[in-house]
Every structure is written in structure tokens, then in C-alpha cells.
Write a protein that binds this DNA or RNA. Sequence first.
DNA 1: CGTATACTTGAATTGAGTCAATAAGTGTGG
DNA 2: CCACACTTATTGACTCAATTCAAGTATACG
Lengths: 245, 245
Amino acid sequence: MSRASHQRPATAASDEFPCRDCDVRSRAICAALAPHELAELNAIVSEVHLEPQQAVFYEGDPAIYAFSVTRGVARLSKMLPDGRRQITGFLYPGDFLGFAFHEAYAYTAEAVTDLQLCRFPRPKLTALFDAHPKLERRMLSFASNELELAQDQMLLLGRKHARERLASFLLKLSERAERLGEPADPIDLPMNRTDIADYLGLTIETVSRTFSQLIQRGVIRAVTTHRIAVKDREALLAVAEGETA
Amino acid sequence: MSRASHQRPATAASDEFPCRDCDVRSRAICAALAPHELAELNAIVSEVHLEPQQAVFYEGDPAIYAFSVTRGVARLSKMLPDGRRQITGFLYPGDFLGFAFHEAYAYTAEAVTDLQLCRFPRPKLTALFDAHPKLERRMLSFASNELELAQDQMLLLGRKHARERLASFLLKLSERAERLGEPADPIDLPMNRTDIADYLGLTIETVSRTFSQLIQRGVIRAVTTHRIAVKDREALLAVAEGETA
DNA sequence: CGTATACTTGAATTGAGTCAATAAGTGTGG
DNA sequence: CCACACTTATTGACTCAATTCAAGTATACG
């Protein structure tokens, strides 16, 4: 179990005209607006860049900003007083973070890889919602998608065995890559074993042993530690749903 | 672990003018509308009553309706092919169910107690959102609240010990009761041990033993099996956050 | 008031965790 | 490009919290 130390949050960078040639616009909240309305979004956005392990914000910080991921991968996590950590999600380009309708963030967000974000001051974003209900609808659809992911994850954490958890995780990453227009098969794992363990409610040792087991059974093959090839997708699916002993 | 059999879903009852003297209106999505706009909601709502264990809908059913709980308690759950079940939430009066922006429900919803629901055909509800963005905003705030609960639950399922899980559960029920204007102290447990186990990712035996342990340590007292008095709230809080061995 | 169901308790088992050692990457400067 | 230091991942041996299997005991209901 990790009891990690942290980097300090980073501050903003440029704020010129990022939306124009943003290549995740179609997937992000921004897609709710017509091209000519994008200027309004542009007016309130700043771009932020973070390096691996830097924090976007910490649980409990005043929730001044909301963010949209444009490049890289982020992780959301919560901690117990003694340092036990649970990662509640990994965010990819197009994902939104900072829904919370509270004064403070309910979780910590950190960069897993080099991370590029669009940053919106929440009061201004809320004002835009008033002008463009389409934006709010898109937010709602994002939130309910995340809710569904969260429910899947609760099933995983509450009821699945280690092998089932890891298989499910690999499949979700693979599907996610495909949705982002990347190859579904050699699965890229941008996060380290500690992050995987803290996401799956396991220890790094169990994650490692379980990888070895799946490799030994011929279900997957490790291209490198951070790149996994699926040798038998059917088997991986069966393992994920607990249809194998 | 439960491998429960199920009752069939129930159908609608009356549809006269339920909103007028609804005592959860202030807490439900309906509060987004001014009194004179309530008629529009009334026009599309039907009341549904279910008995304990009856299903509101099953995972995979076409998602035709959304619901608002007006009386009683419901449970949401997901199952693995071999019958392992995870309850992802308990819903109380004022809670909304059926966000999913998909064609099918992503989970099963069942009555824990006698259950009274307001039922909305989703297309008509969506049409109302167009007319009243306030409604959609309220939905978004409901969804992000649920998301926060889900994240807490992931921390619980992934990282907490049995004793910490049960203590957290009791505290949340207590806080929830208080928010609904009921006494926070003798905590009412409308669900049975199997439901608690499937919510906390444990077995009924572990739940039972853990209750006994908390009682024996003088943290709580069992008034009946379904009613728990808190003897030492500080201790219960400490246990919930893992600050006790 | 008896019977079914729900809950509790006990004993034995086990899957995942902990502790510990090794191996494989990653990066840096000579 | 290699040698060293450091971090990350794997593997092994042992432990333990929670599960499983198995009685028992309450509780609720017709």
C-alpha cells in the first residue's frame, strides 16, 4: 500500500486561443458548443501543463477551477488518515474534472504522465452554463457516464478477485484506447504498479503476481512492463467476469 | 454472498395530482421548479408503489422511465454471472434514480421496504429539461452528489477493513437520517444483513461478527437487530477513519 | 405456537497482505 | 557507452483478516 509523498500544485501557463485547433474538442465538454460559440469558452480558459506526479489540486482545496484533459493521463485519489490510498479513476484526453458542487474538491488530482489541461474558473463556467444549456446537458452526460464507471468499479472492488480485477482493468484500458482512436491491442499502461494496485484495491505484490499468472496462463504477454499484448481476448473477458476458476 | 432470486417488476398505480402535497418536494428534483410550474411535472408523472423485494427495474432493461423516491428505501445493485452481488447504493426519499444516458439501465433497482416512487417517462422528462434548464442543473447537482458518494464508497471497498466499513456505514446512515429530519441517534437499518454485506463488500457472517465486536467494545448498542444506538460517537468516527487498531 | 427465515457464533480454510530478498529498468555523469 | 546509484517490479516465505462451512439461536410471521 502506498503512502506517497507529493509534489506541489502547478500554476497556469498561456491563455491565447487554445480551442481553435484542439484535437480533443469533439470528445470534451467543448463539443456542446457550435464553432462560433467557442470564443466564449476561449475567453475563460487557460492552459496548464504539469509534469508527472505534480498535483492539479488536493482533496480539501477550495474548488476554484474545473479542468478538461487535453493531453496525458491524470489520476484521482482519496486517502485515509494513515495514508492508505484509493485511486477512484484515471482521466484521459477529453475527460472533465472538478464537477463537485461543493466549496472544496472531494479528491486529489495528479498527473500520471506529462499532462495538458484546460482550466476554467468555476464561477465563469457556471455563467456560461446559464447562457448555453447545451453545455450543462453535456456535463450531465459526462457525470452520468462517470457514475456508471464508478458503479462498475464498486462491483470490482467489492466482489471481484485479484485476477478478475486485473483482467477487467486491462479490458477497460483497451476499450478506452480504441475509443480514443488508438490501437486496442498492445495496451499501454502509463501508470506504475503502485497506481494500478491503489486503483484495484490490491498491493503491488499482488498486482505483480497476477500479471505473472495471466502471462503464464497465456492470456496476455508483457511487451514491456508498461505495455501488455492480449494473446487471448476471449479468455481475458472470461477472467474479467469471473467465468474461470 | 447472496445469490438471491427476485420478484418481478411492478407497474404503475394512480396519476392524479401527486406533487401538490408531496412532502419530499423540497429535497427532490422537483424543488427546481416554482410552484406554478409543478403542473408540467404533474402532467408526466405517475405514482408507483412496490412491496419489499419487488424490482423497480433490472440491469439491462430498456431505460424508459426515471424515478424519484417519495417514501421508503430502495437498493441499487449489479451482479456477476455467478451471482456475486454488489449493492452500489441505498436510495431514500428525495433521491433520484435512472440517470443513465443509455438505452438500458446499468443496474437493478429493488424495494428494500414498502416503496413509493414518482415515475417519469424519460423522453418527456428530457423535454421538460429543455423548457426548464433549472431542472437540468438540479439533476447535475444530484449526479455529482452521487458521484461523490460513489468515490467514498470506492475508498471504503478498496481500502477499509471490515470494522471501518461498518462504522462508516452506520455514520452515513445516521447523517442521512438527520438530513431527512429524523433522529440521528438510534440508527434505523431498514435493510437486512445480506444487503449490508453486499453493500460493504463483505459476507453476512463478517457483518454479524463486526456488529458484535463494536457492541462488545462499547461503541454501539443493538436496540433490535435493525436499530442501533450509538454509545460513543467519537469512537465510531475514529473507527470509521481507521484511527483505531 | 410452530415453522421458516434471519442472525449469530465457532472452527477451519484461504486469498491476499506483509516482510524480505532479488532482479530489472532508468537515469546520470565520467 | 558503460558503471553506478536509484527506483520500480518480481518472486518467495510466512501471516492474517475475512471467508467458508457448520451449528446453533433468535425473530418474525401465518
